[in-house]
Write a protein that binds this DNA or RNA. Structure first.
Lengths: 220, 220, 220, 220
DNA sequence: GATGAATGAGCGTTCATTCAT
DNA sequence: TATGAATGAACGCTCATTCAT
């Protein structure tokens, strides 16, 4: 029993160290992908920054692509935890959508610009697997928004004119998020303060949604 | 004189052949960048598809990056010729902007999906030179749209609430173009018919613009 | 403790293997540069002869130029260890210089013709970095000889007529070494036996030195 | 007859133009080989500087190597015309050899540093054909000097101790020429004024020669 | 688990040379 | 003769990945 406890402790410690290593490597990759770009970053550079050997990187991740995919998964999870949640909380108004917008521009863009860069820049135009993964995540987020739109329309007593209208709105909203962040964060290099810009963008997208909400009428 | 004419003719023919070769190579690059991605395309593949030697590719273009930059220039020119023009024609209403939207979704997306892919996907996250070039072109297009917004607001007697509002609108609009095209063309692989989707997107963005147009009041 | 020793041993062995590999590659480069010339030798040929992969060559050396520079460093070190030392031992006569000459012609030319070829032939007219390196080494050797001349003149009670005389003598002596070796070893392909030729050359250069040693007189 | 004269004139003109073109190209090659090095110079650069097309270069010269070989021939001819001649004029003293030295250091080094660079630097360590050519020319020059030494010894009533002594002297003298020029012109970048340096070098080599001249005695 | 030396396919690029005009 | 576009073999070099220790 005593023996077991000792083993258990060391096992726990090893488990913790494993997790730490994993994180160290992933953070190193994130930093370098953000700063130098995915293709311009080599595994050796990642292992150097993470202070492990190349072999260790390959112990924790299948290959370079796998690192990017794990980052995408993580980013997608973070995004949906913080922002997608708000979309789901949409009640009888568009407040949830506005709240989501505020969270994105005021908080997410400020705290995680490197994550946005990886999602919107570094994972674009890479291997088909990465692309698929990225599109999957985008689809989920779009789905979140689409759900919010449908629910809001329903609760607020509106119809949507076309078959794809909710999807179009969702794609437009995520597109606005993406383009505003990319333009002001990466092209114009505003250091994270997207508050006023974000407010305008939210006003814009709310106007856009309302313009597609049509009074309910008897369906054929 | 006859001699001169002959020389002239052969010179003209040679000139035409040069232009044709140049185009053949550029089209081959476009096709492959679109189909396989920029990094996944090698110069040898381009020269094979263009049915010239590797050396010939390097005779017409400085290097691989140069091919992409020439494509971007071409695409930007085409885009601004076809669509940017409409933005500039904005008069006393938002009709010009709507017209631009129709042209983009009905025509540009149908005729030149590969050009959109190169602008929105393959040129993203590449070398800094390419990125700069891409950002330059985007900035010009955003400038076109911004100009249209400012003019429309002025002519229609509206104010824009914030300092960056026109820019935010412009970025949002181009972001919607980008995201709708990418989502429906590349993720969902609709073969070019973006008519109904485009209509909704245009309704959306018009609503967005109007929501940021505020009645003019005396400025402090 | 046993464990530590084992680790230590394997570490030592690995270290030794590393050193061996390094030497194998450098020797392969030396052989090929000598036999075929620097430009006519490709990295693949070097890696083939060294029985390693191309990548391994690049693991040990930065690039092709680096190989040549390491060879030059090595040769320079060897030369100065064996021959430069004698120049420094110059006492009250020219015996040290004669000794250096014997060592060069009887020993160095016999044992290391390929090193002479690399120093005097293959490293000439290459990249500016290589040239600089070569000139640096030559300058050091010339400096060694110059020092010997100055010391001998001083000890033997002679003046040197001009400001640059010692340098001229030094350059002439190294030039004689170079030209005799190149002519008889590479042009006439005498297989290393430069004894009699060397004796004459030494007599020649001693005569040259003495002809520039002038009796000391009160300087103005 | 009139016709013939016209043809003749134009033929002469054409002949003259041909010769001019040939010279223009050769001079361009010389300049570039000197300034950038043989390997760092491309045919295109030569044709650009000569203001002709690449094809024209190939009309006048078989290939790139051929350009270098023609330059070597030319330089060798020039050298032997100016300096070798003096060696041949050696009479009953070493004055001819001294005269040759003055001509080399005072005149040749000042007027034609680029030619020396091509002979002593750019043509070293190239293809075997070039090397052979260079060695041939060197051999001729060495032969000139050797002849002068033999004649001077004879006329002055001296013997030479060894079988190769005259050759050793000749090789040493040319080696001194080479090394002094290379060191002061190319390494230390003295702009051509090698007068005082040359005087010392000549004193040196005269001393060297005399030290190998032994009083004639009955041979065994 | 961790290491890092070794691999080698594959890349972008150069440039001497040719030849139809 | 003169042109210069076209060729393609050959190069130096990179880097994701493997595996013996």
């Amino acid at each position: 029993m005593g023996n077991q406890k000792v083993l258990s402790r060391s096992a726990i410690r090893r488990q913790r160290e494993r997790e730490e290593r994993y994180q160290t490597i992933l953070r190193a990759a994130e930093t370098l992908f953000y700063e130098k770009g995915y293709h311009q970053t080599s595994i050796t550079q990642i292992s150097d920054l993470a202070e492990v050997s190349v072999g260790t990187v390959y112990f924790y991740f299948k290959n370079k692509e796998d690192l990017l995919i794990h980052l995408l998964d993580e980013i997608s999870f973070l995004f949906r935890s913080r922002i997608g949640k708000e979309f789901k909380n949409t009640g009888e108004s568009l407040d949830g959508i506005m709240k989501a917008g505020y969270l994105f521009f005021d908080e997410f863009c400020r705290l995680f610009p490197e994550k946005l860069a990886i999602m919107y820049r570094e994972s674009v135009g890479q291997s088909s697997l990465v692309n698929e993964c990225r599109m999957n995540h985008q689809a989920k987020i779009i789905g979140d928004v689409e759900g919010a739109i449908l629910q809001a329309a329903e609760k607020m007593g509106f119809d949507l004119p076309g078959q794809d209208t909710a999807e179009v709105i969702a794609v437009s909203i995520t597109g606005i998020f993406d383009s505003i962040a990319s333009h002001f964060l990466f092209s114009k290099k505003r250091s994270g303060d997207l508050k006023s810009v974000g407010d305008d963008a939210i006003t814009f997208l709310i106007g856009g949604i309302k313009n597609l909400f049509v009074p309910k009428k008897a369906k054929i």
